[in-house]
Amino acid sequence: MDVSASQNELLGCETPPFLGNGDIKDTMKTHYSHTERVEYVCQKYYIMEGEPSRTCINGEWTGQMRCLKPCTVTADDIRHQNIAFKYRDANKMYSTHDDVIEFKCTKGQPVNNVGLRQKCNDGVLLLPSCQ
């Protein structure tokens, strides 16, 4: 079989799949050729898990990725729990996935089973409480 003839039979792809909390780096097109690749980027504070691109292979998009959510801590959360950031420069209200944040009690001692050192996990950050 002629290789160039088989290349002509390979299908292109429609618009690439949506990525939650992410965007395509370049201008999106309505049609992509076989083996054409698109690159994605996550929104601010979101972290990419997986390869940052998808490739059109015979009409199907290959590649898997997702944007992991940041964790947020509000001033009200901190006040309500009687905690503060352990380090002065750690005034992080936003922390990316896998960031470790250390807290200290502003009064009293820790009262729940949540440690003063916590790690952000896809938007979830357990807060210690002190009394």
Rank of each mutant, 00 (worst) to 15 (best):
V3P: 04
S6M: 15
S6Q: 08
S6I: 08
S6D: 07
S6R: 13
N8G: 13
E9V: 03
E9Y: 07
E9M: 13
L10T: 05
G12Q: 02
G12A: 00
E14C: 00
T15Y: 06
T15S: 10
P16D: 03
P17T: 10
F18W: 12
F18S: 15
F18Q: 15
F18I: 12
N21V: 03
D23L: 08
K25T: 12
D26I: 00
T27P: 06
Y32N: 00
Y32M: 01
Y32F: 05
S33K: 15
H34Y: 03
H34I: 00
E36N: 00
R37D: 12
V38L: 11
E39I: 13
E39V: 12
Y40D: 01
V41A: 10
C42S: 09
Q43I: 09
K44A: 06
Y45C: 05
Y46P: 03
M48D: 01
M48V: 15
M48P: 06
M48Y: 06
M48Q: 13
G50Q: 14
G50V: 05
E51I: 10
P52R: 08
P52A: 06
S53Y: 15
S53G: 04
T55R: 13
C56S: 08
I57S: 14
I57N: 07
N58I: 05
G59P: 15
T62P: 01
M65I: 08
R66L: 09
C67Q: 03
C67R: 07
K69S: 11
P70E: 10
V73M: 04
T74L: 10
T74D: 01
A75Y: 10
A75V: 08
A75M: 09
D76E: 15
D76N: 12
R79H: 04
R79C: 04
Q81S: 06
Q81P: 05
Q81W: 00
Q81N: 15
A84T: 01
A84S: 12
F85Q: 07
K86W: 14
Y87G: 00
Y87H: 07
D89S: 08
D89W: 09
D89H: 14
S95C: 10
S95D: 01
H97N: 11
D98A: 12
V100S: 13
V100K: 12
I101M: 13
E102G: 05
K104Q: 05
K104H: 08
K104I: 08
K104R: 14
C105Y: 09
C105H: 08
G108I: 11
Q109L: 13
V111K: 06
V111G: 03
N113G: 14
V114W: 04
V114A: 03
G115A: 14
Q118R: 11
Q118P: 03
C120S: 11
C120M: 04
N121C: 09
N121P: 04
D122K: 10
D122Y: 00
G123Y: 12
L125G: 04
L125A: 10
L127F: 06
L127C: 04
L127N: 00
L127R: 02
P128I: 04
C130H: 01
Q131M: 03
Q131W: 08
Q131K: 14
